[in-house]
Design a protein around this nucleic acid. Structure first.
Lengths: 195, 195, 195, 195
DNA sequence: TGATAAACGAGACGGTACGTCTGGTCTTACG
DNA sequence: CGTAAGACCAGACGTACCGTCTCGTTTATCA
């Protein structure tokens, strides 16, 4: 009965799963990713350590799960769409840079970077999950703007998105070390548009 | 003579200090920052563990020292200057992205981020040490190119440099992810030039 | 059922416990108490260091356990009983003094003393465990000999036993020092007998 | 005078030597032999650690020196000489057993035993120094008593001294664990005397 | 009287063991 | 059979001393 036995034995406790995720989220918020231990997660979740390992093979993957499940996320900043690409992107950049000044968001950024660890697979997974949505949303908005002739003729939408995310990342990692990216970045990336 | 009391006891061994730094540098290169332990550093340096702690209070501070002393840097890639800005930058970006595929450089990036992450006070310095030279070289080359009319009219040299370095960081931290081709990035950033 | 809460997690491994005790016993025999380290005990026992500390709070308590459990005892030397008290005791004392020249037994004495020294509460128990059997056997044999008139009229069996054990201890702790011949000690302690 | 060159450099400081001995004595009194460290001795003496090692090769030998020099000693209990051996010895035994109830004296006893360590040479030295005087004094007094016919015909003075010291040692190591040795011991050891 | 040389205090050196902590695995009792 | 609990082996952590080795300083003597 290969699959009929889906309900054989005690079902895994979704409750435990959520408790663990919640505990990890809280602990990251409280003390940062570096301090996070499986021990502490299990204790806070009121679960056994083994249960943690049953669901996730590593600490990093818990963080990954948090990100996918939306329990832990970089501030979701929707890209405005007033029909004018340049001011929309400037507004978006302003908002996101501002939100990174919240230490919790900045800490999450660092957590993600650190979680990337020396495990290349985890790193890819994490980054796809955390930055993928941003990247896709940017490309979509840019493509739309390009169709409206609001992007310079030499510009590549993917390249612009890469550069924008890179700029934001750079800013997140060097809080206060450099002036916040300004509208000049946007104008530069969009190049000479026809509008 | 405020300094008269300096020479009590056996002087600290600069040799041991350097051996430890060198050992840490090598171990990061060989196995990545995550694998780095004080035990291994001391063993490789042929020093006692206590000596490590006498000089630095934590592993992260050793990395910080490596970075600020210039012993541990991202590979220095000179920007070619053929007089043609766009192909020069494309070549430079190609080279640097390539070099980051070397796990040594990638691990170093990670070490840098981790070292900075629980060392907020020195974070600026660390990032300045590691990215500053790149940024300055880029701005110089871009300014020169701009004087030659090889940069789009809307472009800001500092903004371009920020975006370029951000892009490089983004790629270093997302190994194997789908990048936009470097030439597209450069063309986008330079915008419509007169050349 | 007051003990129902006992069996929650994985039960402690009596096997590990015995392996540790055995390792400690062997290491004392091989290299002496002074050389004994928790590190070496755990390694020899094939156990983790933490497991040692889970069972005993200090090295001395392991030795105490060895002694009170009877796993570590001064070599048991039965007192011969040929019906003639004096030669029997001389033979016994000869044998025991001889056996103490074995560094294993000497080291054990030292372990015993050290274990007792920062463990004042258990000191009585330790000494009782290690010297008690000797004392009781001596008193029994002496009483039997006294009934046969083989002990001097002024002698007290307990006092003789005390003095004999004290003499043995003294010799164990002063290896190589000039001892009175054992036969003289026995004759002196038995005093003028009627036989 | 081959040895005339003895005084070339700075002469050794007897002051430092005494300060070290005093420091060691005090530290033993305060915290016991087990806690004693060369570090602490030097610090307390206001001397360098090397100076300690220049004078003595090991911690144990400092204790030995303390004992020889009389700065640290088992309570010196002279054996009374009223002309009557038995009551004299009973009085002596009473006094010495009493004095061992002082924790400092008992601790010293333990210190000596522990210091004996696994170093046979040190052990002999220490014991000769600490118990030798007792042994000699006892033998002398016993011999004198024997000449006066106050010792049983079968008794051997050395054997009696051994047994007495052993009894005292046993008592010192098992404080309160057994009844204090009584006059019965003395009477037993002296056997049937002619007096 | 000035050079030489040994001992001094201080304290860093390479080590070793400590007792604690975490990682990942395993083994129990309960549901 | 999944769970909470918790013991298991392994090994890194940061600390305390060890015994040795420089340092700069002090205190002798011998030239």
């Amino acid at each position: 009965m290969a699959e009929s036995g889906r309900g054989r034995g005690r079902p895994r406790s979704e409750q435990a799963r959520h408790a663990i995720l919640a505990a990890a989220r809280d602990l990251i918020a409280e003390a940062g990713y570096e301090q996070l231990t499986v021990q502490a997660i299990a204790a806070r979740a009121g679960s056994g350590r083994q249960t943690v390992y049953r669901w996730w093979r590593s600490k990093e993957l818990i963080v990954a799960e948090l990100v996918t499940s939306g329990e832990l996320t970089l501030p979701a900043v929707p890209i405005p769409d007033t029909g004018h690409l340049e001011p929309d992107l400037i507004a978006w950049l302003d908002t996101i840079v501002h939100s990174l000044e919240d230490p919790q968001a900045g800490g999450l950024m660092l957590a993600l970077v650190t979680a990337a660890s020396d495990n290349e697979a985890d790193a890819r997974l994490l980054y796809e999950m955390s930055t993928g949505p941003f990247h896709r949303a940017l490309v979509a908005r840019l493509t739309q703007g390009a169709a409206a002739g609001q992007v310079g003729p030499h510009a590549d939408t993917t390249a612009i998105a890469d550069a924008l995310i890179g700029t934001v990342l750079f800013r997140a990692l060097t809080p206060g070390a450099r002036p916040a990216p300004t509208s000049a970045v946007i104008r530069t990336l969009l190049g000479c548009s026809t509008s």
